[in-house]
Amino acid sequence: MDISIILDNSSVYLEGLKNTILLVSVSLFIGLMFAVPLAILRNSDNPFYQMPVRAFIYFFRGTPLLVQMFLVYYGFGQFDFIKESFLWPLFKEAYFCALLAFTLNTCAYTTEIFRGAIKATPHGEIEAAMASGMSRALMLRRIILPSAFRRALPAYSNEIIFMLHGSSLASVITIIDITGAARIINSRYYSPYEAFLTAALLYMSLTFILVFLIKRLENRWFAHLQPQSESRPVIEAPP
């Protein structure tokens, strides 16, 4: 165990940490933005809206993230019409390819999570909203989505953590993320233990931070389900 290898190369890991955080947060954010409307469409009775979303989810949940990334990175690079189009400057960048694959992948899973959460809205809530004369849009905004977000949070927090860990695949297409940094150090010093242990610790710290933030969000969103401190029964010890 030689920690000096890691300390001497902390800048490589720092760069990796930056890239991992950026890749994961941007893809999660864009994925989430698209997932909410897609989940609403997915719950629609109109097959014209519903089927394309189903097909999208089916493809991205049905194939491994690594294969999707290879398709975008090496696959698209094979076609001349893509290489000559205005899109090539984007697809040329490994970073963009990883971001695209990650975003589409997380979007598909998140859509499915929200679909379930929306579907599980208690019927009484909808009936009450209708009875008080809310329009469909208002009902969605005030009743269905807020309650669906609450139900989706535990499942979505898993998706966030899976995405963080899945992002280690980016190192396969030349991106220096945390895993990529570890692979560089490993290959330079032939010390896989030190190199990958450092990567593991970095991922673990990120996961802890995420779990902490989600916990705080849960406490906020589920405040109405917490026992009230004033009404907590006090049991006094007998004298």
Binding site: Y74, G77, Q78, K83, W88, K92, A94, V172, T174
Partner: peptide, 14 residues
């Protein structure tokens, strides 16, 4: 990771 992947990216112009 492999020389073959490097060739792919050279022909792709990356």
């Amino acid at each position: 990771g492999t020389q073959d992947e490097a060739y792919l990216d050279l022909t792709a112009g990356r």
